[in-house]
Amino acid sequence: MAVYTEVPQDEAAALLRELQLGELTALRGIQGGIENTNYFATTVLDGAETEHVLTVFERLGFEQLPYYLRLMKHLAQKGIPVPEPAANTRGEILHRLQGKPAAVVNKLAGHSELRPSVVHCEAVGAMLARMHLAGQDFAMQQPNLRGLAWWNETVPVVLPHLSDDQATLIRSELAYQNHVAAQPAFKALPHGPVHADLFRDNVMFDGDRLCGFFDFYFAGNDSWLFDLAVTLNDWCIFHGDEAADGLHDERRAHAMLASYQSVRPLTAAERQLLPAMLRAGALRFWLSRLWDWHLPREAAMLKPHDPGHFERVLRERVRQARDLADSLRDAGGVPA
């Protein structure tokens, strides 16, 4: 758990009253996540108890946050199950606590499914496609702040902390991704608002029923294919087992791709570039975990993710690029 900013209960209570959400009865830190300070806030209004999520933003500023919050409200109003930011009587959804930006959203039902089945992957694939289509007419623009430009800036910063073998891999992959990004096919990829961090712990299920996506604070405008690749790299990869950690799970990947394409079929360029984007997604999260591991910030409670997992994912994505293309063909992932 990461709590960078201790929020006094009376200050949180005043904000919740301003938002007409009732009287605060409990405030507790949320496990998971290393970017922001998050609390569950329980309120009572007209005798009914309701759960909310209170977030204090540690890296994002007042100028960046309207994009994320307005995107969530836009998607919620389009019927996508995402948390909807609470507004005060002036219609403002971005607030201030302890001198920092803050927001309050409704708490989604259900729990994270950390051992997803084919059924869970199908549900996520279809909802991700629906979300992409629902965001097409979102008017605000903001680049993916953890995209290629950030990779180029950050690789030199983490290089001193890597072994020679790791440094060779990360330099090689960064060069490859810059080459891919310069291609006309890449520039023609369908794009729009993306979640960019749709890991298993950012989706809620009640049994097999998908209750919603949350934690949009890495969102930005990017290729939809990159968003799909990031999702495949978490939901359709083996985790934890020492022998299999980081390996591709063909059955779950087929299910997610087929379900996504039942809503939004991939273009020819997307089918061609999917293996490259799977590598891009692995590089992005290996790099950010290296950053958090070697250059941590102070926090009351902080446990950064082990960067080794996404190093293994990247090595597998590079090693099996052609085999992976063959294995995904049946789901329409890439052409022969």
Rank of each mutant, 00 (worst) to 15 (best):
P85T: 11
A86E: 13
N88C: 05
N88D: 15
N88M: 08
T89Y: 01
R90L: 12
R90K: 10
R90Y: 15
G91R: 03
G91K: 02
G91C: 04
G91N: 12
G91E: 10
E92G: 13
E92C: 06
I93Y: 03
I93A: 08
L94K: 02
L94G: 07
L94F: 15
H95P: 03
H95A: 03
H95R: 05
H95W: 13
R96A: 14
R96T: 14
L97R: 06
Q98F: 08
Q98D: 12
G99H: 14
G99C: 14
G99A: 06
G99R: 15
K100H: 15
K100D: 09
P101E: 08
P101R: 02
P101Y: 03
A102K: 07
A102I: 04
A103K: 05
V104L: 11
V104A: 08
V104G: 04
V105Y: 13
V105D: 06
V105K: 08
V105R: 07
N106I: 11
N106W: 07
N106D: 07
N106T: 14
N106L: 13
N106G: 14
K107I: 03
K107C: 12
K107D: 06
L108I: 05
L108P: 03
L108T: 07
L108C: 09
A109L: 13
A109T: 08
G110W: 15
G110Y: 15
G110R: 14
G110M: 12
H111I: 10
H111D: 13
H111Q: 11
S112Q: 03
S112E: 03
S112T: 03
E113D: 11
E113V: 02
E113Q: 10
L114D: 03
L114V: 04
R115F: 03
R115Y: 06
R115S: 06
R115A: 05
R115M: 05
P116K: 00
S117W: 00
S117Y: 00
S117H: 00
V118H: 01
V118N: 00
V118P: 00
V118Q: 01
V119W: 00
V119R: 01
V119G: 02
V119Q: 04
H120I: 03
H120R: 02
C121S: 01
E122T: 00
E122K: 00
A123T: 08
A123S: 14
A123F: 08
A123K: 11
A123L: 10
V124D: 05
V124M: 09
V124C: 07
G125Y: 07
G125E: 11
G125P: 10
